Each structure stands twice: as C-alpha cells, then as structure tokens.
Amino acid sequence: MLKKLFKFIFKIILWLFIISVGFVLLFKWVPVPITPLMIIRGAEQNEKGFNRTWQHDWVSIDKISSNLQLAVICSEDQNFLNHNGFDIKAIEKAYENNKKGKRIRGASTISQQTAKNVFLWPERSWLRKGLETYFTFLIELIWTKERIMEVYLNSIEMGNGIYGAGAAAKYWYGKSAAKLTAMEAASIAAILPSPLRYKAQPASNYIAGRKTWIVRQMNYFGKLDYKQSDNGK
C-alpha cells in the first residue's frame, strides 16, 4: 500500500515537472495571454460589484521604448543583467534590514517577479516562494534576459486593471509604448511597487521624487545591452 502511494506521488511530481517545463518552453516564444493576477483582480472587481476593468495588449519588446526597459531595471533590479535570477547581496541586505526591525523590504528580482506574475498567485507563503524559486530557475535557464524583460513588461500590473506596457502607455499617456520618453517611463516604473495606490500622473510628491531618482539612475546606467548576459541562449 505504501509503495503504491509513493509511486502515485512520484507520478504526480513527474507530471507537474513535465507540465511546468512545457509551459516555460511554450512561453519562450508564445505571448502570455493571461496571468493568475488578472483573474484574481477580475474576481475581486465582480465581488465588489464593479465593472470589470481589464486592459492587456501584448507588445513585442522591439515596440517597447528602451526608456521603459531601462526605467524598470533602475527602479526594480539594477543587477538584472548580471545575476542568474537571484540578487544575493540584495537578499542579505533585506534580511539585515528586517532583522533590525526596520520596515520589511523585499529583494525580488525582475526574474522572480516575472515567475510569480506568469505562473503563480500573489499571496505570500512558503509554498509560493518555493515555487517562485523553481520557476525563476527555469526561466533563467530557458529564456534570454530580453525575453524575461518582454514577458515582465507585458504581464506586470501598472494601474487598476492595467496590465503591461502597451496598456499602461495608452492609459497614462495616450500613446504607444514605443514612444514613451524617459520621464514618462520613469513615472510608470515609479508606481510599480504599489500600482493600485499610486498614479503615474498626476504624480504625488512621493512619485515625483521617485521619478527624478529613476531618471538619474538611468543616466548613470548607460546603454542597455542584453547580449552581454545571455551567453548564446
């Protein structure tokens, strides 16, 4: 009986592994049509009796302003091109910060956020964190950095019911994602920690300050080059 149970569990784990790798391989080339967060937000809006707001237009990375790509790197993960999915120094810094009783700081990289947005649910738990680590490893192994950025910028929440760069550019500035200026891109990047709370425009004093800081970091960062980190993928 115990042997059959172990065999059954092994088969489940094996199939989950095959399915997860299959989805990661599929999304290496195919646009991600929907994410768990989109479904959850839609359900929350229905529960509250609101009309469901859902704007999500997939835009290829060559049609997303390099300003926005650079802005999110400078805002969210300045070591994105150099790490393998996890920023160890940022994790250590966050741990020390939290141990001292300061406000809890995260250390999620763009790769981790992409893994969570595309494959998992938003609530924090050890199970989700473990699966996030697993999917982060997979996408870093199978996708290029440029593809991770493309999926990230097409799946992330950028306002109430606004998902991805294409929808965000239209919603906040009435233009295509390709035409975003450095300041406009920085204002969108500035709201990402809490896109339901903050607005890209009109910007609060806090967002205006973050926007200025992000633009300054973009100038320091220099040219964005994915090829240096992809190693022939």
Rank of each mutant, 00 (worst) to 15 (best):
A185V: 00
E184R: 02
A185F: 03
L192C: 01
P193S: 00
L180P: 09
K175D: 08
E184W: 13
I188F: 15
A178M: 02
R197C: 06
Y173L: 08
L196R: 12
A190V: 01
K170M: 11
Y173E: 12
I188N: 11
K199V: 04
G174P: 04
A186Y: 05
E184H: 07
A178V: 00
E184G: 08
I191A: 05
S187H: 08
A189M: 09
A177R: 10
I191Q: 06
K170L: 11
A178N: 06
Y171I: 03
A168G: 06
S176G: 15
A200C: 05
R197L: 12
R197S: 13
A168F: 10
Y198E: 13
A200M: 04
I188P: 11
Y173Q: 06
A200Q: 04
A185G: 15
K175N: 07
I191S: 04
S187K: 10
P193F: 00
A182P: 06
S176A: 11
S176F: 01
A190K: 02
Q201P: 00
T181I: 04
I191K: 07
S194L: 07
A200P: 12
K170H: 15
A200L: 03
K175F: 03
S176T: 13
S187C: 08
K175Y: 05
L192E: 04
A190H: 03
A169N: 07
W172N: 04
P195K: 00
L196V: 04
K170I: 11
A189F: 14
M183A: 14
L192A: 01
R197D: 08
A189D: 12
E184D: 10
P195R: 00
R197I: 14
K170R: 14
A200D: 05
